[in-house]
Amino acid sequence: MAFEYVPGNTFFHRLDPRVKIALIAAFIVMAVSFSDPIWLGCVYFSLLMIIRYCKLPWDRVKGFLKGITLVVAVYMLFNTIYPPVTLSDPLIFFYLIPPSSLPISLDGIVWAIGAVVRFLIILTLLRVMLMITPMKQMILALVKFGLPPEFGLALTTGFGYLPVLADENQKIMEAQQARGFRYGYRNPIKKFKALFTQLLIPAISNSMRRTQDIAIAIESKGFSYDPRSRTYMHSIKFQKTDYVTLAVTVFILVFAVLARPIFGWANYTFTLSLIKNLML
């Protein structure tokens, strides 16, 4: 499931969640400010290295990527046809609708590849960070940044419950199938109809019941007794490595902000001119 922590004890696992949030910020700034596929590719590669280093289960990352293929494809097509930058003198291959609308150009493709990698960086990044940080720590960090503790606690239980609710819908379906109800249609319309008629209502009433149960359960454990002075079993504290990592992160952040506007680096024209030179 999307929000589940993968226990481990690597350098990244141990980082203070506040540093992790800074790291997320640095990566996002890089992803947003760079537009060159090669540069963005390098950023994505370093993310993959983190995944490897933390020994995260690769099939879960892969499964997630597979799940968004369609979205990525559509995103790519759109960016090729309508790049949100004005292309100067694009090298046009052909038009989707001849004679002259919806052009497919080298420039558009290069831009679109960059856009897709950017999209992937942001999604993979959030997922990886959640996989190496217990939700509770992440929220504790947010509380330290000023999020009201009641809200933080509610988020913790909410996130704890999301995968469970998804599981439960699965269980409801399984139980119905165990009583002869058929979901396994190849025909998507039939499948949708089955889901709509049989799953929807039990799923909704189940989640409503659950919400009520949770409310009672957390109240009976003193949730709203006095959230502001509650204690935390594991508090978070900066270690030496955290300071060092934070410094490095800030450096990356500054570099990412300055690279394009000041030095003109990491613009998609970098790859574009490389390719054009090769073709000549």
């Binding site: 217990p134 509770k136 913790t156 996130f159 704890g160 149960d213 949770i214 204690t231 935390y232």
Partner: peptide, 18 residues
């Protein structure tokens, strides 16, 4: 119906923390 936290450890600590 009464397990509400993301991990077993958090679950067991939750009430005492509150």
């Amino acid at each position: 119906s009464q397990l509400v936290c993301p991990t077993v450890e958090d679950e067991v600590a939750f009430g005492a923390e509150n």
